[in-house]
Amino acid sequence: MEGFSIENISDELFDRMKGKSFKENCTTPREDLRYLRVLHKNLEGETKCGELVCHKVVAEDLIDIFRKLYEASYPIEQIRLIDDFDGDDELSMSKNNCSSFNFRKISFTDLLSNHSYGLAVDINPLYNPYIQTVNGELHVEPANSVPYTDRSKAWPYKIERGDLCFRLFEEHGFTWGGDWTESKDYQHFEKEVPGVNA
């Protein structure tokens, strides 16, 4: 379908990424990453053009997932490179931006996030927050998503187990952060790939 494509990381794109998502200590080779263009619809049903960077082993998966979400008019507010937010995950999430590759650690740990490999995707993160109790205190990312921590309520852009977004990622071998027990990451889908992150 026109509007969906996979490309290598061009020099021009790499210049956008350097020092932001692709930090100086990045251990994921540039040649393992791919640049995707996808279409998506927002809550008003308007067609928007999105772009994201992911690992080459999930590029076809993500093209298929986003194409089917688009065909079903599944609402996604925006899909911009996290480099447009200077690689700042909190800022990107607070603007409800979907993204994939960003070389960084998991919050409150020294472990690399699966975003560091381009094997994780965050969907509508403002309305599907990351929730964890740290030293007895509730920690929510992004900070402005606190109103959406009560998952018994309904609102637009909400991801739930069994909905179309969940089913498509599951069909392609991704797991959902909303199923985690130690914390909850309702925006987050990730894939384990032997030899890359497993």
Score class of each variant (00 low, 15 high):
152 S>I: 01
123 I>K: 08
1 M>E: 14
141 E>T: 12
70 Y>K: 04
38 V>S: 05
53 V>C: 02
142 P>I: 02
91 L>I: 04
66 F>M: 10
166 F>W: 15
110 D>T: 15
37 R>W: 11
118 G>W: 07
95 K>L: 02
123 I>G: 07
87 G>R: 04
147 P>D: 01
151 R>E: 09
113 S>C: 09
79 I>D: 10
171 E>Q: 15
159 I>T: 14
123 I>T: 08
168 L>E: 04
35 Y>V: 00
142 P>T: 05
6 I>L: 06
76 I>G: 07
75 P>R: 09
135 N>E: 14
71 E>D: 15
38 V>Y: 05
20 K>C: 01
61 D>L: 13
130 Y>W: 14
170 E>T: 13
197 N>A: 01
167 R>A: 14
95 K>G: 00
92 S>A: 06
16 R>V: 14
128 N>S: 08
61 D>W: 05
43 L>K: 13
5 S>Y: 09
73 S>L: 13
64 D>G: 04
67 R>F: 09
19 G>K: 11
95 K>C: 03
44 E>F: 15
140 V>N: 13
28 T>F: 06
27 T>Q: 15
119 L>Y: 10
93 M>A: 01
107 S>R: 13
131 I>L: 10
192 E>H: 11
61 D>F: 02
96 N>T: 08
182 E>S: 01
40 H>F: 07
4 F>Q: 02
193 V>A: 15
29 P>S: 12
66 F>W: 00
178 G>A: 03
131 I>M: 11
104 R>A: 04
10 S>Y: 07
40 H>K: 14
54 C>I: 03
147 P>E: 06
62 L>P: 13
27 T>H: 13
170 E>Y: 07
130 Y>L: 13
190 E>V: 12
198 A>F: 09
7 E>Y: 11
71 E>S: 06
98 C>V: 12
170 E>A: 13
192 E>K: 10
1 M>D: 12
100 S>W: 01
96 N>I: 02
174 F>Y: 04
47 T>K: 11
150 D>H: 05
102 N>S: 11
159 I>C: 07
8 N>S: 15
9 I>P: 06
44 E>D: 14
68 K>M: 04
74 Y>I: 15
50 G>D: 02
38 V>P: 02
7 E>T: 09
80 R>K: 14
65 I>A: 07
140 V>M: 05
68 K>W: 05
57 V>Y: 01
50 G>I: 01
56 K>Y: 10
63 I>G: 08
157 Y>F: 14
118 G>P: 03
97 N>G: 03
198 A>N: 14
119 L>G: 00
172 H>G: 05
